[in-house]
Amino acid sequence: MKSKRNQRSNFNFRDFIFTYGFVIVLVFVVVFFAITANNFFTFTAANTVLHAAAPLFIISAGLAFVIMTANIDISVGSIAFLSSAIGALMISRLNIPVPIAALCILIAGSLMGAINGFIVVKLKVNPMIATLGTLLAFRGIGLQLTNSMVVGIPRNIQHFGNAKLGPVYLDVVISLIVLVIMLIIHTRTKFGRQVMAIGNDKSTAEKLGVKVNRVSFIAFVVSGFMAGLGSIIMTLQIGGVAPTSGTGYEFSAIAILVIGGVSLFGGEGTIIPGIILGGITLAVIETGLNYIGASVYVYPFVRGGIIFISMFADALKAQVKPRVKLIDDDQSQLEVCQEKN
């Protein structure tokens, strides 16, 4: 009887639906495109979808930590752009070796994350407004540095962006490895667990001895670092940096996370399978639209719709959750305990 109970409390159908409701959507979307678009279900198609989504996977994985602390960072697209611009300029204008430039990209991303963290955690500015400010500022700096022009990187390194490891793109493999590392950080380190604790309730976490400010700050740095890492792949994929690089990444990343079950209210969600499911759902929808030859103007509309629906579902979830209450749950548990004594 004991084990049966435990199974029941570990698997909650309602929780599952709320967390992975979008997987069901994904299934519908795939079925829809499979019927309407020819050759949708090919390996090449899947490979292309994942290839395109690789930088976003990485950026989302970093952003996840900020969102799980119930903060938000909407500057990740601009961080990616500015760090990418810095890297591309170093390589093309200053002839700095690629590995050093890559390192600088990561440092730049982390620094920008630290600036966000400082503004939100130390100066106590609302995270949405703070990162909206840095979103504009970082992009502004990047446009200034590049003169709003495309900066290309030499051909001999461009091919890394589309290199393949066997049948799959190299960057897909890299992003999966990064996700696994982030999964371990999220579930098996003190930092990852404390991020979740803060998202549950700041003051409770504080009471339990979690250094709330420090952990929240580090979450922003991680987000910036990962935006930098994502931007390396982005730069290689497009062979340089364009004035529009990284535009809209913040909302795609947020959509991926929310679709994947990461709550904007904090304290909830997973890196794997959450981000993979969310990322694939979003990518499939956009690629699918491409396949059926939808007008380009439909894309932003669809993406906006998806973001709205997923956030609405998230809000709904937050409203309904507290009412998920099992009247006799602890009662029978206690009876079990009492029988034992």
Binding site: N6, S9, D329, D330, Q333, C337, N341
Partner: peptide
């Protein structure tokens, strides 16, 4: 404490007594 919950049980799913 005379309780045999699995430590992995999510806190939301147990009652205030537990």
């Amino acid at each position: 404490l005379g309780c045999n919950y699995d430590p992995k049980t999510i806190v939301r799913n147990i009652g205030p007594g537990s």
